[in-house]
Design a protein around this nucleic acid. Structure first.
Lengths: 248, 248
DNA sequence: CGGGATGTTGAGGCAAGTCAATCTAAGTGG
DNA sequence: CCACTTAGATTGACTTGCCTCAACATCCCG
C-alpha cells in the first residue's frame, strides 16, 4: 500500500474540513485530544486504501481528493456503492469483521487517519459526537434508499441526470460556474455506480448532449445547460442538498 | 390512521424483543426510565403508519408483525426499500424533516412507541446506547450496499434466490423446518423490492420451482429444496447472518 | 356462490447488454 | 519533438432479459 506520511501532527484549527466534517461537532477543548489521535497521510491516484474483507484498523476523514468504494463479484462485475470526497468519513467503528467494500483512490488523496479503537473510545465518551455520527449514518441510509430507487426504478438517462446533479452539488468549486461538473472518475466507474455498462453511459452522455441538456467539454468535464429539465428527468423536485457522507 | 393502544404501560422485563432489539443494550437500572418513555400500540394489516414527507413524531420498536417501507415516484412506480420485522427499529431520531419513506403494515403489528424528542434525549445521555445504535446504523448501511449490488448487478433469478435466503434467516420460526419460508408480502411488494414487475417475479418463482431449487406450497409459503445451489445462484458464499434492522 | 384482488402464463416489443470496430488522449521512449 | 503504445471513450450491429399488455386462473371473504 503506497502511502506517505505528510505531517505526523496535523493542526485541526486550520484544517479545510473543520466546518464540514464530523470535526465540526467537536468543541475547542475536545479538539486538542481529538487532534492528538490523528495523523495525516497521502495516497497517490489509483491506490487501494483497503480491500474487501481486509481487517481495517483505521478510520479516515478525507481532507482532499476522491475515493470510490466498490464490491466485486466472482463473475468480475463490480458495483460502486459510492464516491467519497472532501469532508467525508471512510471506515467503520465496528469492532469486528472486515471491510465491506474495497476503497480505491480516484485522485491524489489526503486524509486524516485515526486508529479505530482509540477513535471508538473517544466517540463513546463524547455523546454529542456519537449522536452527530448517528445522524450522519441515518442520512447515509436515506441516501442509499435514494440510490436503490435509482437502480431499481429509473431508466439510464434518468440515472445519469440524477448523478450529474448530485455531483454538481457535492463537489462544486466555489470560484467556477456552478453548472460546470468535474467528473473525476472514468466512465466505467460511473457505469458501475449506476448499474449499467460503460458503453451505455457513453451513449447516454451523447444523447443528453444532442438533446441539449448538457455540453460535453471533454470526457471529464460537463456543462449542465438545462438544469430544470435535468431535474425533471432525474425525478428531483429540487436540487439535492449537500451532506457529509460515510463509506465503509 | 387506525391505531389502538393496547397497554399504556408495557413491561420490558418480559418483552419478546428484550434480547434482540436495541433494548438489549440497556442495563436493568436504565430500563425503568426507558420503559417509562414507551407506549404499546397495535395496527391492523395494510395500515399506513406514516407517509413519505410526514413529520414523524415517534420512533417504534417492532414487537410483532411486519412492515414494508417504500417510496413512490410521480409515475406511480414504487421502490420498496426494505421490510422490518420483530426487533427492528422504525423511525428516525433526526430532529428535522419529514419521513423519507412510507411505512405500511403487511401483517397485524405490535410496536413499542417512543416520542422522538424524549427518545433522542435519552440516547444523548446514554453513550452505550447511542454507540450501539451507531453500530446498528452502520450494519444497515452495509445491508443497503448489498441491496445495491442486487439491484445493479444481479439477474432476477439471482435476486429472488438472495431474497428467499435472506427471508429464511431473518424471520424463521424456531419450531419449523428452517427451509420453510413464509413470504408474508404479496408478489407486487417482492417485485418492488427487487426492482422488477410482479409478472417477472411470478415467472421466476415458477422457474426456480421447475429447476428443483424450491417447492411452492402456496403463494405465501415456499420450501427451499436446494440451499447450496440457491446460495450459489444468489452469489452468497455463506448464509447471511441475522441482524437488527433500521428503517426510516 | 359471486366478485374483487391476487397470482400465473403467453405473445410481442424495447431498453440495455454484448461484441467489435474505430477514435481519442495520454503517456513513453528514441 | 515525433512515432509508437496503450488505456479509455465512442459508435454501430445484433442479441437478450425484462417489460407491457392481455387473457386466464385462483384465492379469499362476504
Amino acid at each position: 500500500m503506497l502511502c506517505v506520511t505528510k505531517n505526523a501532527r496535523p493542526d485541526c484549527r486550520h484544517c479545510v474540513v473543520r466546518h464540514i466534517s464530523l470535526c465540526s461537532h467537536i468543541n475547542s477543548i475536545e479538539r486538542a485530544q481529538f487532534q492528538a489521535l490523528s495523523k495525516r497521510y497521502r495516497f497517490d491516484r489509483s491506490q487501494i486504501i483497503f480491500e474487501q474483507d481486509d481487517d481495517i484498523k483505521k478510520v479516515f476523514v478525507i481532507t482532499r481528493g476522491m475515493v470510490k468504494l466498490y464490491r466485486s463479484a466472482r463473475n468480475g462485475k463490480q458495483q460502486v456503492t459510492g464516491f467519497l470526497g472532501t469532508g467525508d468519513l471512510l471506515g467503520s467503528i465496528k469492532r469486528s469483521a472486515g471491510a465491506h467494500c474495497t476503497a480505491e483512490t480516484i485522485t491524489d488523496l489526503e486524509v486524516c487517519a485515526f486508529e479505530k479503537e482509540p477513535f471508538a473510545d473517544f466517540i463513546r465518551i463524547h455523546p454529542s459526537l456519537c449522536f452527530a455520527l448517528l445522524v450522519t449514518a441515518m442520512d447515509e441510509i436515506e441516501a442509499q434508499y435514494d440510490h436503490a430507487i435509482l437502480l431499481g426504478r429509473k431508466l439510464v438517462p434518468e440515472r445519469l441526470a440524477a448523478f450529474l446533479l448530485l455531483l454538481s452539488q457535492r463537489w462544486k468549486m466555489d470560484d467556477e460556474d456552478p453548472n460546470l461538473v468535474h467528473t473525476l472518475m472514468p466512465r466505467k466507474d460511473i457505469a458501475d455506480h449506476l448499474g449499467v455498462t460503460s458503453e451505455t453511459i457513453s451513449r447516454t452522455f451523447s444523447r443528453l448532449s444532442t438533446d441539449g441538456l448538457i455540453k460535453i467539454l471533454d470526457s471529464k468535464l460537463v456543462l449542465l445547460k438545462n438544469v430544470p429539465r435535468l431535474q425533471q428527468l432525474a425525478g428531483f423536485e429540487e436540487m439535492p442538498s449537500h451532506r457529509m457522507a460515510i463509506g465503509l
